[in-house]
Structures are given as C-alpha cells and as structure tokens.
Design a protein around this nucleic acid. Sequence first.
DNA 1: GTACGTGCAAATGATTTGCGTTAAG
DNA 2: CTTAACGCAAATCATTTGCACGTAC
Lengths: 126, 126
Amino acid sequence: MKITNQRNTILKFLKDNQNHPSVEEIFEKVKRTLPRTTKATVYKNLKTLMIHDIIKEVNIKGVSRFEAKIDPHHHIICKNCGKIIDFESEELRNFALQIIGKQKDFTIDSAETNFFGKCNMCDDSK
Amino acid sequence: MKITNQRNTILKFLKDNQNHPSVEEIFEKVKRTLPRTTKATVYKNLKTLMIHDIIKEVNIKGVSRFEAKIDPHHHIICKNCGKIIDFESEELRNFALQIIGKQKDFTIDSAETNFFGKCNMCDDSK
DNA sequence: GTACGTGCAAATGATTTGCGTTAAG
DNA sequence: CTTAACGCAAATCATTTGCACGTAC
C-alpha cells in the first residue's frame, strides 16, 4: 500500500478525531488541504484502509462512520442525534466472551457492546 | 396505524424468521402473496413499523436487515457472510449496564453486545 | 519504469418522494 | 366519509466503476 497525501490526511484525521466522522466530513477535511480531491478518492481510500484493517466502519442510524482502529472498545450511541463516543472496558469484553462460551454454529473471536441512550444535548429532562 | 395486507405480511414474515431478512428478501416474500406490491411500499412499511417501535433495523456489512422487536438480545455475526443469529442473555446486559454506571455526558438505557466470528459454513478450519 | 493512486464523469444501487387511486376504520 | 396506505414513476443520495493521467517507490 502506497503512502499518498490523500491517504495520510484521511488517516491522520481519523486518528486525531474520536468523533467517528462520516464520509462527507472526511471529504470536507481532506479538501481543505488538497482541494482537488474527490469523493471517489475518499471512498477508495476508506475501502483500502479497511481492507488493511487500519480503520473500521460503524453504521449509525443508516450513516457510515469511520474510526482509526485502536484497541477493541465499546460504543455509546445517542439514539436521537447519532453522536457516538468510545468506551473502554476489557472487563466487559472478557465477561461477554466468557458468557457466550462455546457455540456450536460459530467460532467467535471478538465482542463489542453498544450502549444506547441520549446525549445531554438531546436529553429533554436535562 | 392501519392494518393492511402488505403490512401484516411483512410483520408476520419478520416474526416467523429470526433470519434478519434484507429489504430484498422481504419484498420477494410479500410479492409471492401480493404480486402488485412494490419496493416503495415495503420501504414505507418498514419505516412506519420502525417508528412505532415494532421492528428494528440492523446494518450488517453495509446491508440493512430487519427483525421483529422482541425482548432485548445480542447478536452473533459472521464476519465473512454476514449471517446473524440472536443470543439471549439478560445477565450480560445487566453486567454491561452495571459496568458503565453513570455517564456524565449520556443517559444510557440499553446495552447490546455484538459477537463477531465465523459461522461453520465460512470457517475453513472446520 | 511499473504499479498503484488520483480525478473526473458516468453508472449503479438503495432509498425516497409526489401524486392519483384504493381501501381501512 | 376521511385519512392512511398503495402502486407507480421519477427523483435523490450514497457508493462504485472505468479510464486517462500522475506519482510513490
């Protein structure tokens, strides 16, 4: 895999942002430094980076969002606005894997928990 | 919300199938009994049923799939073919909610774990 | 120098919308 | 009767593709 400016910019952006940006947001960011960049290039790069297991896609409320692949972690998702933040807990992951144990139809190698609720911005009671 | 043949067929299909069918699969099923049905109708119904919290959408490898909303549960997903099966564990859910505790930026009300691996069909080592 | 990446435009595929007609309550 | 749902075609939106040209290595 070659290291190009476009590719580097995308990856750096994802590493600096725990925001799980959408394709649109990534595209806007890259264009700021490399104005001739097109969405097709962004899509191609995201795909390549995913194939090489460097980034990961998460789908929130029908929108594709991306994160630089760091240690396994969980997500807290706002059911209203789609905001998503990371939550680390190896303990939870181990508990999940232990509780599921051996499955006759599946060989399981990872577990991730999604927490759903409302962020403070969307929570009317606050 | 009116009860129509199309709507009923979709809902019954989802209740009878733990397969998490895609829009295409649901459409094919409905057409068998009600041949004039179009995809637009299927989409409209899926949206309506979701708004009324009767069904739920899950996105697997970029494909929208649907399930009749039953008790909260977890998913086991094949990273290769996208096959998905349900896994019940109130214990896991409670553990997750307990471990996350109070969050300053979020009011959390549910937790669901996704397990990833390979199903027997896709697992070469079997 | 060669293969991979980029930029562009066109193609595809999924989902939505508008609107006249039909059917549920 | 009245309003929501249906069926159809057209529109929109996200994502992919093909290809000529550029650039990393």
